[in-house]
């Protein structure tokens, strides 16, 4: 499809976790969050506020963490999208996922996928984030359960383990 073509309600394609997915019979105003969950069978990305406030729908688009609820899916046809399902390459939990479990950063788990994606995006950009940089990086992700202490601890653990691995 040429990217400048007008799109009616027919279909378009998205690249998610390295795979092309056809989206068919969708209403073109649908958010990426809705399309991922309801049309592509990728329910790992959570939705709560649908207004950019909670971060539970965080995905990586062209290298940047964004709110999937604020992306119009039909406009993301050229983008490289990574969801929480696409972070692991071998089917095992990633280092960040393991550190969240080890540090007790997961309670009900609703906020967890968004946080895991945001922390992966942080560590890709900055391998040794300071305390302030960690706080800043996850300031768009709300957690109702943990009080954040164990989440910060999980991020520190993931950072330190990666640094040890790199030495």
């Amino acid at each position: 499809m040429t990217s400048s073509q007008d799109q009616g309600n027919e279909f378009y394609a998205l690249t998610v976790n390295g795979m092309r997915h056809q989206v068919q019979d969708a209403w073109v105003g649908e958010s990426l969050l809705y399309v991922l969950r309801e049309r592509l069978g990728l329910p790992g990305t959570k939705g709560a506020c649908e207004q950019g406030e909670c971060g539970s729908c965080t995905v990586v688009m062209d290298g940047e963490a964004v709110c999937a609820c604020l992306v119009m899916a039909a406009t993301a046809v050229d983008a490289d999208i990574v969801t929480v399902e696409g972070l692991s390459t071998d089917g095992e939990p990633t280092d960040v996922q393991r550190s969240f479990v080890d540090a007790g950063g997961v309670q009900c788990g609703f906020c967890t996928p968004g946080l895991i994606v945001a922390v992966h995006a942080l560590l890709e950009r900055n391998s040794s984030p300071s305390e302030l940089e960690i706080r800043e990086a996850i300031s768009g992700n709300i957690c109702r359960c943990t009080g954040y202490g164990r989440i910060f601890e999980a991020v520190r653990q993931a950072r330190d383990t990666r640094q040890q691995g790199a030495q």
């Binding site: 950019g52 964004v66 709110c67 604020l70 945001a118 300031s139």
Partner: peptide, 9 residues
């Protein structure tokens, strides 16, 4: 402005 996710967009 907002959060990192909002500022990226």
């Amino acid at each position: 402005v907002g959060s990192p996710q909002i500022r990226a967009a």
